[in-house]
């Protein structure tokens, strides 16, 4: 099974989770996800997910000027984002428990 296929369904919640504690800019979020073990996560997916979550109202965004490069667009979680994250945590917990039971029983 291809992990990148599985990742598609959970990228939203993964991104919300890594910005929950600390705001991050696009590439920073990519790095955090990879450091957390999602090595195959694509940059376009992450940037796209950040933009979509922002458009959907789950993230706030602000620009931090940078001296040596382009300005960085930071994303932070807001109340709606936290609510979404909590909901999806529960969905994921139930789903993964179900899947684990199914796979262990087999």
């Amino acid at each position: 099974m291809d992990a990148t296929q599985l990742l598609k369904g959970v990228l939203d919640v993964a991104v919300l989770a890594v910005v929950e504690d600390e705001d991050g800019y696009g590439y920073d979020v990519v790095r955090r996800l990879r450091a957390a073990g999602l090595e195959d996560v694509g940059e376009a997916s992450v940037y796209g997910t950040l933009r979509r979550l922002y458009t959907a109202g789950a993230l706030t965004s602000y620009v931090v000027p940078s001296e040596e490069g382009p300005h960085r667009k930071y994303y932070g979680i807001n109340a709606q984002g936290r609510a979404t994250l909590e909901l999806q945590r529960k969905v994921w917990a139930e789903f993964s428990t179900t899947m684990n039971q199914l796979l262990e029983a087999a």
Binding site: G26, Y27, Y47, R51, E68, P70, H71, R72, K73
Partner: peptide
């Protein structure tokens, strides 16, 4: 802007 950031 995102591309410029990630390239940098």
């Amino acid at each position: 802007a995102d591309l410029a950031e990630s390239l940098a």
